[in-house]
Amino acid sequence: MNDHDIAIAVKGLKVGYDHVVVLKDISFEVRRGEVFVILGGSGCGKSTLLKHLIGLFEPMAGEVWIEGVNLVAAEGEARRRLLRRFGVMYQSGALFGSLTVLENVRLPLDIFTDLPERARNLVALGKLKQVGLAAAAHQQPAELSGGMQKRAAIARAMALDPGILFLDEPSAGLDPVTSAGLDALINDLAENMGITFVIVTHELPSIYAVADRVIMLDQKTRTLIAEGRPEALRDHSPNPWVRQFFKREAEPSVTATPTTPT
């Protein structure tokens, strides 16, 4: 595997807030075109790690290389150019409530391109059609269901055709049918558009449906404790907690004790 195959390389990352270390010694690589999932229990720092990968926060130490450029060190125009090369879908969708769905998707094009308005509308409509939301183009985000909002957010993240998409909890709070539809969309975009996905989630059905490779974070050790294909980790991980996570088993301490009928 040469450097061209690597979309993202994280080296010795240490992240946290103020002086509290949330994660340390985090190193991994994401290959071009793969669906890469970051998972772990609640509160282990998945979303924090994602926010450092997209440059929202500065890490305490370490490097994040995206498309061969170190995001941590990039400044000014170099950083702006790099930010254009990936899209982000936030957990809540983060659509702007004062704009229509079409205007939301068109916004990155309005800011970063000088295409005429009709062309920008066409791009935005094309993206909305791709996620199955062309009919909702002129609705307000508040009028959409949770699943539709997330799809609209994916369309906005794709507006500039980035090579990498970061998704934070795409299936959280969605019904199984909508969630499966979103998984199918991710697989479709990865296969047909060659987009690299980095997804933060702990929804097991989605992980099995989309993930090429996963890494698992641990709250106790604050490090990365597993890396590989989800099925392989479920069946063969040497770490019992990892197997327990994939098999969706409760911790022994919280398992209900059988009661004797009286």
Partner: peptide
């Protein structure tokens, strides 16, 4: 050709 390039082609095709 990405989405923006496609939009240019569609603009031409639609006779804008």
């Amino acid at each position: 050709c990405d989405g923006s390039g496609m939009a240019l082609l569609h603009c031409l095709q639609m006779g804008f």
